[in-house]
Write a protein that binds this DNA or RNA. Sequence first.
DNA 1: ATTTCTTTATTGAATGTTCAACTTCCGGTA
DNA 2: TACCGGAAGTTGAACATTCAATAAAGAAAT
Lengths: 178, 178
Amino acid sequence: MGAMTEPEPRWLSDEEQRMWRASLGVLNLLPLFLERDLQQQHNLSVHDYEILVRLSEAPERRIRLTELAGLSHQSKSRLSHQMNRMENAGLVVRESCDSDRRGQWAVLTEAGWDRLVKAAPDHVESVRRHYMDLFTEEQKKVVGEAFATIVEHLRNADGGQTCPSQGCPGAETKPGPK
Amino acid sequence: MGAMTEPEPRWLSDEEQRMWRASLGVLNLLPLFLERDLQQQHNLSVHDYEILVRLSEAPERRIRLTELAGLSHQSKSRLSHQMNRMENAGLVVRESCDSDRRGQWAVLTEAGWDRLVKAAPDHVESVRRHYMDLFTEEQKKVVGEAFATIVEHLRNADGGQTCPSQGCPGAETKPGPK
DNA sequence: ATTTCTTTATTGAATGTTCAACTTCCGGTA
DNA sequence: TACCGGAAGTTGAACATTCAATAAAGAAAT
C-alpha cells in the first residue's frame, strides 16, 4: 500500500502563539496570587471559597455533593476529601438526604457563612487587583463572551470522573443574598 | 475617635460576574482536558511538555534551573522534584555549571527531543480543539493583548518562592527549530 | 582574609490530588 | 420478588505540590 503521509500539523501562527502563551501565563500565575491573598487574609483556599459561595447562593444553603462537585469543577473524590477538611474546620456539615438514601447534602454552617461574609470584600478586591481591573470595558465584554463559549464546549465534551454538572453557570466572588 | 466605616466593597457588576465565572471555568477545566489528552496519547504531563518545549527552544537545549523555573511558572522546589521524575524518565539530564559551581543546567536528551517531536502535533491539535479554534480572529487578538497585560502585571507583582523569571514571554506548543 | 548577605538548588515532612476499588442504594425488568 | 446495571459517595494508596529548613558557593564589605 502507498505510504500514508501524515497531514502537516496545524501549528499556531505567531499571533496565536503569543495569545496561547499569555493564556498559559494567566492559567499558571493567577491562581497563585488569589490563593496567596485569600490564605494570608482569611486562611481559606480558593477551593474553600468557591464552595462557600456556591452554598451561600443555594436554596437553604445546601447542595447535593455530586451537583456541588460539578458546580465547583471538581471530581467527586476530591470534593469528598475537601468536605472532610471543611467539616473539620466547621465551615460545612454533611446531612443525609431523605429522598435518596445514598445521597448527602453539603450544608453551609453559620460559621461558614460568617467566614465567607468576612472574606468576600477582600477577595473581590484581590480579583480586581490581579485581574478584572486590568481589562478595558471592551476587553471584559469580548473575553466574557469568548470564555463562555469555551466553558460550554468543555462541559459538553467532558469525559471522565470530572465535572458531572450541567445547567447553571459558574460561581465566585460574592456571597449569595441574605 | 469616630467609628471608622469600612468603604463599601467594589462588588463585580453582573457583566463582570459572568466574565469572572467564565474565566474560572476555563481556569479549572482547560488544564484537565489538555492533561488528559497528553497523558493518554504520549504519557506526558502538561508540565513535562512545557519544560520540554522551553528546553527545545534554548541555545544548546539547556537552561539553568532557576531560569527554567521562571519560564515554566513553577517554584524552584517543585521544579527540582519534577526534574527528578523527568530525569528518571530519561527526558532530561542535569549537568553542573562551570561558571557557577552552585548552578545546574537542565539539558534536553535525545530521547526527550524525540518525545517532544512526536507529541507536539497532537498537542497543538488538542489546544486547537479545546481552546484556540473556538475563538474568532477578533477574539484571539483582544484576548492576546489583554492577557499579555495581565501576565506582565503578575510577573512584576510576584512575591514569594514562585516565578523568579523576567524578560522572555511564555512557552508552549511547538518544539524549537532544528 | 574574614565576615556577612544573598543566590542556587535540594531535601523531607505535611498537605493536597488522583485513581481505582468498594459499599450502598436506586430503578428498571423479568 | 429477585436480579442487574448504574449512580452516589467514600476510602486508601500512589502520586504531586507546598513549605520551611538546609547546604554550598558567589558577592560584597570590612
